[in-house]
Design a protein around this nucleic acid. Structure first.
Lengths: 337, 337
DNA sequence: TTGATCAAGTCAATCGTATGACTAACCATC
DNA sequence: GATGGTTAGTCATACGATTGACTTGATCAA
């Protein structure tokens, strides 16, 4: 089986350096102050270095009970938006000496169970979940102390986004341009996220005295292809002069559908996205979209989770991200009809 | 600090079930055959279940020396292509009872050192590296037995793609349409990947008796924005009637540049991409591109790495993926000029 | 000289699981 | 009734690092 040539342990280092194993441990964990002389410390470190010694993380965790792995669960890693979330979260975690295990919830139907198992099995210290669904949260409650949900269903979320003001900005922008027929295209997953955005969208229309025209929800997925029928259906309805999309990728689908329906963007159809991924600036015309501060969100999530893990009792203040409407070239006054 | 209410161990289960800790361990690890009666086994499992017991992964690893975490290092997680690689790798790993730690090499300049540390520190069993650079491989050699490189520089890679036949297909397709001025746009990262594709592209031109016109390499990044100058420069050169891109995202950049330069795709400019990400079918016209079988590659990588970890000596056969040219609507005969 | 104080280390128990060695009980066989 | 074999389980140690308790020798004050 294993032919591990030479497992270098604190013991081998101790032997090679002519000190006790405790001393090596003291030196390596930086707790040598007052217990190990500078000379010895330097010597031990030199020997350890020469041998390529790294403390066995597993043994350390077992002894200290402190884990340094977090999980991050996102709906769809293939989406650049979640890639950004991951990159930022991983960076923040790394700076706090933690590693991140990424879980794609769509790819793994039993993801909640896996996270629970990992927490119970002391493989991970805790987990960040982006946009859990209503079905998930009760199950996650089992390990509530080790989980932080971003954009969760209960408004008490430690990290959340201000959907309301974001949607306000979008609808007001469109209404301000003169649109009255505003459609909605959504990716229906995770349900909670979608539902919240959509519900508030409708409320906002009502508040402005606008009629709700039509909406379409693709299946439980983000894939553009799956939204094509919806995009085409909305694009064919001439009374709809603007379409709000739950996600930039869907907006890309609308661009295609608009072309097929012979409607020019933005002159004949206005489109607004959500997330402001790189694609938004590649589409032509560049997409007007609602930007989410991914980096900040991920950072806050990591910090707050680590705080919570250290002391579940301490009620941490929560963070609610403000969204920014990036007005580009996919929105304009509706054509006079 | 930690207020862990009740750490459930094999010992607590043993006590609750009225058996010894060994018996619990035997049952939980499935090694009860011949050592534990069926009755006892069922009873222990029932008790364990009731208590919500999960074996402590850390302790198990320490005892057995068998780790079940792998690392996957990719250049840029935000790119959907690498998202696909991750999803597939994670799935394969999960089926073999392993978790995956994802590392974005661009976001983490010291990634090689981190992987080495993690391996040495027994945090991960081994690592898959997608497209390591020439600078990286010597450093990775230190833990050669625990690493598998996809698209590495040395052709002996256990998992590789057949760049040559892929580029053959692309260039022959364009040449067959009558193109003689073929430009090349590349993302220069990781250098090795780019270099190999580009070198062979030039060789292929020579073989077909075609003149090499122009190429442009964006900085060490995949971001579309960074490639804009290059795309615009190439698009302005009228003698270039087709552009081959290292990556689909770059192709998207070319679409934009072509519009700016007043050249219609495909009638006035043909474009070919690389990877076949979802975007390829969203662009208009849909992009002709070289598809890489991501799922298969990731699967093979995981399996071969696990084999290698089990027995570094056993020379595993290698796998070379064939690429498929997806001919869509971004390529056509060059305009008569 | 005696004791106190301190710096520099070592000792040994511990974390929770896995597992080879051992035991106890039971049955069958010669 | 001694021997052997099988079944069902327990015992005790080891994995490698951490850490509170302890030792040792030196320095210093009275």
């Amino acid at each position: 089986m294993k032919t591990g040539p030479s497992p270098i342990t604190s013991n081998s280092v101790a032997k090679a350096a002519g000190v006790s194993q405790s001393t090596v441990s003291l030196v390596m964990s930086g707790k040598s102050a007052g217990r190990v002389s500078d000379n010895t410390r330097d010597h031990v470190m030199a020997v350890a270095d020469k041998l390529g010694y790294r403390p066995n993380a597993t043994a350390r965790m077992l002894r200290t009970g402190v884990l340094n792995i977090l999980a991050l669960a996102v709906p769809n890693v293939k989406q650049p938006f979640f890639g950004e979330i991951f990159v930022a979260a991983e960076k923040a975690a790394r700076q706090a000496d933690h590693a991140v295990v990424l879980i794609d919830t769509q790819n793994d139907p039993k993801w909640v169970e896996r996270i629970i198992d990992m927490v119970r099995g002391r493989m991970i210290a805790g987990s960040i979940v982006y946009a859990s669904d209503s079905d998930d949260e009760p199950r996650l409650a089992e390990i509530a102390d080790q989980v932080l949900v971003i954009e969760g269903q209960n408004s008490g979320s430690l990290v959340d986004i201000n959907v309301e003001s974001g949607v306000d900005a979008v609808v007001e922008h469109l209404a301000g341009l003169g649109h009255t027929g505003i459609g909605y295209l959504s990716a229906d997953y995770p349900k909670v996220t979608f539902q919240r955005r959509f519900d508030y969208f409708r409320k906002k229309l009502r508040d402005l005295g606008l009629e709700f025209r039509n909406a379409w929800h693709s299946g439980a997925t983000f894939e553009i292809e799956a939204s094509t029928p919806g995009a085409e259906k909305l694009a064919r309805q001439r009374e709809i002069t603007a379409i709000v999309c739950d996600d930039d990728l869907l907006a890309a689908g609308v661009y295609r559908a608009a072309r097929k329906a012979g409607r020019a963007i933005p002159d004949n159809l206005s489109v607004v996205g959500f997330n402001d991924i790189e694609l938004a600036r590649v589409l032509s015309p560049e997409l007007t979209t609602l930007a989410i501060p991914t980096e900040r969100i991920a950072q806050e999530a990591v910090h707050k989770l680590l705080e919570k893990l250290e002391d579940p009792a301490r009620a941490s203040s929560s963070y609610e991200a403000e969204l920014t409407l990036k007005i580009r070239f996919s929105t304009a006054r509706p054509a006079k009809g």
